[in-house]
Nucleic acid binder design. Structure first.
Length: 322
DNA sequence: AAGTGCCTCAACCGCACGAAG
DNA sequence: TCTTCGTGCGGTTGAGGCACT
């Protein structure tokens, strides 16, 4: 008893979409909204498979798509996210507003792979191509990168950003403990839960702990990222622990607030929680309703300034891998 | 101008997952 | 608990465009 085919293949068009088909699909979705892809073709008068309609809409017709070349910032963000998430194109696409997983996947395969190879980096492992087994330092569990971040405020010049990817850290345990409670998880959280051991295995010397100094406003009581207009890369001299949760969630969420999908920054509890999207600088993410803006002295108006990526104060490739 | 090879990217395919019954 | 359905994801394909000879 097999599954029924997703569509009547004998009576469906395949291949490139025509202008008329596009118009029909757009008109239908404008009227009825997305969803029910299986029944959409018939209802819209299209001789197409529902999956094909969905793909066409998501990858090409959606009005919020950002067309055009990828920026250097997007390149670096993709590389960084790929090093953490692997070929989870949809998760990566979720960090790049206006870009689709298909687009990023294609771009990766055609441009970034080559770019990394030219840099002498293996695109699959994000390690130097010549980095043999002896250089993997398998016994070391902590890769701590310490970088000085220049800042307009002299008092912050010595601010330290620590990115630790070690396995056995309190924060990581915390992540695991929270993810152990299935009742608190939604589907996205479960995806992350599945991903966690995956990229710990992928990068045995990496853990998930991102330790950066949060924007000053995050230290204020009741502060959240929707209430501030200060720079997203403002660094408080006192190191704060920031959980690195790679799906735009808040790992140390308020006990009174269920851990849920969505970018709304939770309140800072003891300076330990930060909206991941905002920490990435992706303020215009669909999932993030944070309204914080940058002040121009740092950060990025385009929203991509992952721990100083745009300004070049922290090049992840320079991170010390022990 | 014609032939060839390479590159890009839209689209397809098969599979997996979650929800519903 | 099992089956079915709808949807989404990642890998792959192939048509069309471009560069080179």
């Amino acid at each position: 008893m097999g599954r029924s085919p997703c569509c009547e293949k004998a009576h469906t068009n395949k291949g490139a979409w025509t202008k008329e088909e596009d118009d029909r699909l757009i008109a239908y979705i404008r009227t009825h909204g997305e969803g029910c892809w299986r029944s959409l073709p018939k209802a819209a008068g299209l001789l197409r498979c529902g999956k094909s309609c969905r793909l066409r809409w998501i990858n090409y017709l959606r009005p919020d798509l950002k067309r055009g070349n990828f920026t250097e910032e997007e390149d670096e963000l993709i590389i960084k996210l790929h090093s953490l998430l692997g070929n989870k194109w949809s998760l990566i696409a979720g960090r790049l507003p206006g870009r689709t997983d298909n687009e990023i996947k294609n771009y990766w395969n055609t441009h970034i792979r080559r770019k990394l190879l030219n840099r002498g980096i293996d695109p699959a492992t994000h390690r130097p191509v010549n980095d043999g087994p002896n250089n993997n330092h398998p016994t070391t569990t902590t890769a701590t990168a310490t970088t000085n971040i220049s800042h307009s405020n002299p008092s912050l010049d010595a601010a330290t950003t620590t990115i630790s990817f070690a396995n056995a850290t309190p924060t990581t345990h915390l992540i695991k403990e929270e993810l152990e409670d299935e009742t608190k998880l939604n589907s996205d959280d479960r995806k992350i839960k599945k991903t966690l051991p995956e990229f710990q295995e992928r990068c045995p010397d990496l853990n998930l702990e991102l330790r950066i100094s949060p924007p000053h406003h995050h230290l204020l009581p009741q502060a959240n990222c929707s209430s501030s207009s200060s720079s997203s890369s403002y660094v408080h001299p006192q190191l704060q622990h920031v959980s690195y949760h790679h799906h735009h969630h808040h790992l140390r969420h308020n006990q009174n607030q269920p851990l849920k999908t969505g970018g709304r920054s939770s309140s800072v509890t003891g300076g330990t929680t930060i909206c991941f999207a905002c920490s990435l600088g992706i303020e215009n993410s669909k999932e993030c309703s944070c309204t914080s803006s940058v002040d121009g002295t740092s950060g990025s108006s385009t929203g991509y300034d992952f721990i100083g990526l745009k300004t070049g104060v922290l090049d992840y490739r320079s991170l010390e891998m022990k």
